[in-house]
Amino acid sequence: MKEDILVLKHIYKRFPLGEGEFTALKDLSLNMQAAEFSGLVGPSGSGKTTLLNIIGGLDQPSEGEAIVLGQDVANMSAKAAANFRNLELGFIFQQFNLLPVYTVFENVEFPLLLQKKSKAERQKTVKEALEWLGIAHLANKKPDKLSGGEGQRVAIARAIVKRPKLILADEPTANLDAANAHNIMRLMRRLNQELGTSFLFSTHDEKVMAYLERIIHLRDGEIEKDEAQIPKTVSE
């Protein structure tokens, strides 16, 4: 029996809207086990990104309990949440969110710098991550010189370089063409299988869905359906 890395109980998230409020998540409960490759799927406004933000400690639920990797992210201070994200989580964004003035190497090195790793260790680990993703030759390039696929690989390298237990990927293929989207998904699946890293996606891209082991359908802030599937293999 695998351990639960994510336990959400009766989560509500409400946002002020005019004089009233908008409920983005309604009584949402969810568990996720280690090394899962799962996705939150649903139309825009269904609450996918809001849920990812709560799991990532970037936002707090209005109500409910959120335990991620054994930590109560619903009641964390900003500093503790930052520390938690730095040590335990990886983020991959739709628009890559690479730091524009840094080189590829510096972008990937960034989380290790926050962890106060030694220079030698940083260089070794970053080099390994870049080589693993096949982008070592881009090390000295700035993000604006990268193609979409290259940019997303750098973002993945930045997410995995600190070997997080859970990676949260928000629409990671939305800005990529089909070929690059498949390549990126294969890469992440390989990571999941070889390193045991858990992934939770937010997507409505069918190319992504095809690789997922578990699809959690959201609609209007509620889980509509939670289904397991046989994913597309890396070699396909």
Binding site: K79, A82, R85, N86, L87, F93, L99, P100, F110
Partner: peptide, 16 residues
């Protein structure tokens, strides 16, 4: 702003 958000998501606190 996005850069600030990225810093925070990568593990910096808003104060940092």
């Amino acid at each position: 702003q996005k850069e600030i958000g990225t810093y925070i998501s990568l593990g910096m606190s808003p104060k940092e």
